[in-house]
Design a protein around this nucleic acid. Structure first.
Lengths: 200, 200
DNA sequence: TGTGTATTGTACCGATCAGTACAGAACTCT
DNA sequence: AGAGTTCTGTACTGATCGGTACAATACACA
């Protein structure tokens, strides 16, 4: 028994996520967010408390939409874990070649607000951890690495994660496509995924 | 034949560099800069034109002070290039263990303003390129990699660079020391530097 | 057809942002 | 000592920041 809201709250959150993704936390001003989300100031504050809370919710949304998708690539689809790692890095290349230079919201958050705000840092760390665990699983299920020690795989999972973060950070800074491609080439060779050479 | 300036322009630039390094471009407000550089608004604008120009000059300063230092580690000191790469990553670990969580100004710039401003992006890319070339040189002068193809070394140099960027980005986002250590462990093993195990 | 209630639209808030105007101060040279 | 010149200190600008107050609005229910 009240006035109904004009917007779908999930859609609005998705819009917010995309805006933060493209602009970054600081550069995504309230004006930009309101415009992109198609709602008024009061509605936004009524529904999302404040900018930081909105960002945290957008990060949660990103987790579901992008991080979990990456984790799915790392943990399902192919028998061999190394090939799945391979696929993840190839998908990054593919995005770049399609003109997507937004990088990764999580990685941008790590470089930006997470350095200042503990609440944001906590969420970022949790998601990064999730990814490193997925790398670990993939390595464990890889013919080339299953025999290595638990510690070795843990180390390598962490390395793959920082590699991923660095790659997507550089992409956002307009690094030439060829440089990105080279980096992935070397990483693929290193991990030794199933597929012989380039493909996508 | 005029009033002499009260500050040393090089010292001021060094201060500015450190402030940008710690706070990041956006968060380093004029107020913070003026305070930290110990000068007044007029003097700053008279000497450095505007904030962005100051940042570009601070980036140049960072190139001399930090990037070139890293490049020196990669290109001089030891006979074996892989060991020099090893040393660079170990120095990152050492900084973290000493409580330095500022990361790398260049990497933060890559993730932040370089994504928006072409002038900044250009400088960032130039410096990143310089680093990847140094990695290439180190690989070429490494017993373990000298025999590989030129292309392979180029790929791997680019990978080492993105690894470096990712690592320092994660450090700034307050990633646990152990995770950083793990990542470096794996990277060291991968590169196969001379020194057997941990050291510093 | 009211009446209660939650959302919306708008106008506003103080704070802070980067940048500027300009008078006064501090020096060198004549 | 005076003129010329450059730097400094302060006060100010308009724009924008995130956030709030409050009346108008649109609905469900009685």
């Amino acid at each position: 028994m009240a006035r109904p809201r004009k917007f779908d709250i999930e859609d609005a959150l998705k819009d917010a996520m995309n805006i933060f993704w493209q602009h970054g936390y600081d550069a995504a001003s309230l004006a930009v967010l309101l415009e992109g989300m198609g709602m008024t100031r009061s509605s936004l504050y009524q529904a999302f408390v404040d900018k930081k809370t909105l960002f945290l919710k957008a990060l949660d949304r990103y987790e579901v939409e992008a991080v979990d998708a990456a984790i799915a690539v790392l943990t399902t689809g192919s028998e061999d874990g190394a090939e799945r790692i391979d696929r993840l890095f190839c998908s990054v290349i593919e995005a770049v070649k399609n003109g997507d230079q937004r990088g990764c919201l999580l990685c941008s958050a790590a470089a930006g607000p997470a350095a200042v705000d503990p609440d944001i840092s906590e969420v970022v760390q949790r998601q990064l951890n999730k990814m490193s665990q997925a790398f670990y699983v993939a390595l464990t299920q890889s013919a080339a690495h299953a025999h290595t020690s638990e510690q070795e795989r843990g180390d390598m999972a962490e390395m793959l994660l920082s590699q991923y973060v660095g790659l997507r950070t550089m992409i956002r800074s307009k690094t030439r496509d060829e440089a990105v491609q080279k980096s992935v080439n070397a990483m693929r060779k290193f991990v030794g995924g199933g597929r012989s050479e380039v493909s996508a």
